[in-house]
């Protein structure tokens, strides 16, 4: 989604001007020099920004746009990893086969449920935490930094720890459950338990990050709104609901979009949670996401063409989500 937006903007940047250069020849006269200088100045103002953003777009074209388009082209072929140059045209077959591919629909469903399981609690908790942090607290900076530490941890390290925590035989979660008299749970084997476990890793990593974004937005809300709400007799909770949340609406929308993109592309957490052969996402593919299915197709079964088709389908799903989001956002704006 972001890619198309940037690509559209990128087309305008094709004719970026060079850096202004002094014309050859020495100072031809005060009047002319002034004109030249002012023209250079105008060019500088008008074109320099394009020169400054150009490196990004050049890199984007090479490492973003080209792979995107080539993936689309490859998805219309039968390509195997053993011979990537041997491409045989199959038209839309890689896409039509996805329609009755149970593994694909299972992965799509898992991506959705894990997405909901992780995003909804994550954003609600982030909002709550941001609200708490917004109060005057002792050691406010400490709490803020602490919130961000999970985000700064690598996926691999975090997931490894979670795998140990959720272990069936020797895991700490089951040990704690046992202490209160609950039988051990085989977290990885169950559909809901495994999806819950994967979601909890996502929640753990991203809640703090979103909380800080909310906190920044909260600090931008003028104090007088709270004062007048307090004068009207609004309680803290009412202030939160009727002042804070409406003021945060654009920020909330932003975090929803970003989290949705992240959830659609979820890959590292379930892969590592699955351990050896994690690309399958469990014995019954109970936590195989679209990202994992793509990886399994391309790098385990070696069917690059089919993997490309999954990649493009994911891309189209994101476009769809973006369109729905944009419509919702427009509705929201109109209603205010």
């Amino acid at each position: 989604m972001t890619t198309t937006a940037t690509a559209a903007r990128g087309t305008g940047a094709g004719d970026e001007g060079g850096t202004p250069r002094r014309p050859p020849g020495h100072d031809p006269g005060p009047g002319r020099a002034g004109r030249v200088r002012s023209r250079l100045y105008r060019w500088d103002v008008r074109y320099s920004p394009y020169a400054f953003v150009a490196p990004f777009f050049l890199f984007f074209a090479a490492f973003g746009l080209f792979p995107l388009l080539y993936t689309g082209w490859a998805s219309l072929h039968r390509v195997e990893l053993a011979a990537p140059d041997d491409m045989r045209w199959v038209g839309l077959r890689n896409y039509t086969r996805l329609l009755d591919d149970d593994f694909f629909w299972n992965a799509l469903g898992n991506t959705f449920t894990i997405g909901v399981l992780s995003t909804v609690p994550q954003l609600l908790m982030a909002l709550g935490l941001a609200h708490l942090l917004h109060y005057r607290l002792r050691a406010a900076n400490f709490w803020r930094v602490a919130l961000l530490t999970p985000y700064a941890t690598s996926v691999a390290a975090a997931t490894l720890v979670f795998v140990l925590l959720y272990g069936r035989d020797y895991g700490m979660v089951n040990w704690a459950l046992g202490a209160v008299g609950i039988d051990a749970v085989d977290w990885q084997s169950g559909t809901w338990t495994s999806q819950f476990a994967v979601s909890s890793i996502v929640i753990w990593r991203w809640t703090g990050y979103n909380a800080l974004i909310y906190l920044a937005a909260m600090q931008a809300v003028p104090d007088d709104r709270y004062e007048s709400a307090a004068l009207d007799g609004a309680s803290r909770w009412q202030q939160f609901r009727h002042v804070t949340v409406p003021a945060l609406r654009p920020t909330i929308l932003f975090t929803i979009v970003v989290s949705t993109i992240g959830a659609t592309q979820l890959f590292g957490e379930p892969l590592l949670f699955g351990g050896a052969g994690g690309q399958k996402g469990g014995a019954s593919h109970q936590f195989q996401t679209l990202g994992l299915y793509l990886y399994e197709q391309g790098w385990f079964s070696f069917h690059l063409g089919r993997a490309c088709a999954v990649a493009w389908t994911m891309f189209l799903i994101l476009l769809l989500i973006a369109a729905v989001n944009a419509t919702l956002a427009r509705r929201l704006r109109k209603s205010h």
Binding site: A157, G268, L271, L272, W299
Partner: peptide
């Protein structure tokens, strides 16, 4: 089936990503 010289899940995963 499987890989038999895996020493650590993390290393393997890093290698998997590096391979990708």
């Amino acid at each position: 089936t499987g890989t038999y010289r895996r020493r650590a899940v993390v290393l393997g995963a890093v290698a998997a990503l590096a391979g990708l």
